[in-house]
Nucleic acid binder design. Structure first.
Lengths: 127, 127
DNA sequence: TTGACTCAATTACAAATGTAATAGTATAGT
DNA sequence: ACTATACTATTACATTTGTAATTGAGTCAA
């Protein structure tokens, strides 16, 4: 169903940086890596190239340099990735994942309130 | 942090079947595959072997046959897998994922109610 | 006892992934 | 013009993953 090959972990990590920067060359992406993420400049290059090959990024030549920008929206990638995980871990059902998250991950009271509001809005929209 | 190598998609698929069957030989796992999942018997064998090598399954000889059973609880695998995905997609924050799920995946009114109850309980327990 | 089966064990192998070295080319400073 | 810089492009390579063929050994039916 996804018209593109899936992203690997490392690719996803790099894609996120490009989403954030909107438009960036290898160097910028490289420098935007979180401190402590020890990875070679040329490795970042490879990931960016693969992201482009897979259809996730646009490339444009800025002089001699390649500038990368998002082609597929984060939301789309998120939807596909989460969907796949729900299939794999929960046989395609979302509720068990929700349950897991609510029970296993820590939420603040503010978070809980926010979630309640989300639910209210959701129900409102549907009715 | 995870003391075991991660699971690949195919391995996860097979692991889920073993969790369900509790204790099963290759043949049983093979037969428990969803109709339409076209995969060779020996491939299932390979996955089971790898799952054992990676420390996710126990093996025991039943006569001449290997019987596999879960060694790591589903909950643990789920926690690790979801955690990794949250890191990768949302920089470690759970709320954006919750938001995504609520907004992008379809929930029935019953689901929504159930979620509310979960939240109530959560808040109750904490207070 | 000889196939037909059923399993397990071994081996295979291409594609994907994580990671990088190397080589080539333009650019900017001296 | 020459060299250090900064990029790009090409190539590499081990590991993991998806998938299976092959080989060997025990078992059952005829």
């Amino acid at each position: 169903m996804p018209p593109r090959p899936g992203l690997s972990k490392a690719e996803l990590e790099i894609a996120r940086i490009v989403w954030e920067l909107k438009d960036a060359g290898v160097r910028q992406v490289f420098e935007a890596l979180p401190a402590g993420r020890d990875i070679d400049f040329t490795t970042v290059q490879t990931y960016l190239r693969r992201l482009e090959e897979k259809g996730y990024l646009n490339v444009r030549l800025e002089g001699r340099n390649r500038m990368y920008s998002p082609k597929v929206r984060p939301q789309t990638v998120i939807r596909e990735t989460v969907g796949e995980m729900v299939d794999l871990l929960f046989g395609g059902e979302t509720m068990p994942l929700m349950k897991h998250l609510v029970e296993e991950r820590r939420f603040s009271s503010a978070d809980i309130d926010q979630l309640r509001q989300l639910l209210d809005r959701l129900e409102g929209d549907r009715t």
